[in-house]
């Protein structure tokens, strides 16, 4: 609940790129930014599931965000980063890594500057998008990270994560 309060107070967003498009996520959802490290592939995982990495001794599943957004699979460059996100799924906090093409910056945007996303003409599911931010003549799509990764596909991840501590 504190985080809810805080998020209402904090208006900072982390912008990143997928392909040529700019996206942003609320900093409260972002735990950490990692350089690309070796990703261990998990057999029989869905195609957007890139694999797992070792984060300070914990297993962290990594999601290919581009695949999630219906784009071509991520080409690894030196700008490719892993965002460590803490998302809520069904009221539970889950950590996961999201591959992005590059991380841009931390922006402070007033709520007033966030416009609702156009419902028509967007190639992405509008349910993921909170709104559009206009910063320096550029539009940034503000993503609701909980929703992006809350689809049923991720349940197994959750299960997986639940299993982890036991094992």
């Amino acid at each position: 609940m504190e985080t809810e309060k805080k998020s209402s107070q904090v208006n900072s967003y982390l912008s990143f790129k997928l392909g040529d498009e700019l996206f942003a996520a609320h900093v409260n959802k972002v735990l950490n930014i990692l350089e690309l490290v070796k990703i261990t592939q998990v057999p029989k995982a869905p195609d957007y599931m890139k694999g797992v990495i070792n984060l300070r001794g914990n297993v962290l599943p990594v999601i290919d965000t581009r695949v999630k957004f219906g784009m071509s699979p991520t080409q690894f460059t030196k700008n490719t980063c892993i965002l460590v996100l803490s998302i809520r799924i069904d009221g539970e906090s889950v950590d996961l890594g999201a591959l992005v093409d590059s991380v841009q910056e931390v922006l402070e945007v007033e709520d007033a500057n966030i416009q609702p996303s156009p419902s028509i003409g967007s190639k992405y599911k509008s349910e993921f998008i909170i709104g559009m931010m206009k910063v320096k003549e550029l539009f940034i799509m503000l993503l609701d990270m909980d929703r992006v990764f809350s689809s049923e596909e991720l349940v197994m991840l959750q299960a997986h994560q639940d299993l982890e501590p036991e094992s």
Binding site: S12, L14, V27, N28, V30, N32, I33, V106, E108
Partner: peptide, 21 residues
């Protein structure tokens, strides 16, 4: 590379700072 890493560190710092409100 150093610059890149610095960037990431700075971003991490910024994220942390932003979360601190």
């Amino acid at each position: 590379e150093i610059a890149f890493q610095t960037n990431i560190l700075a971003l991490n710092a910024a994220v942390e700072a932003a979360r601190a409100g």
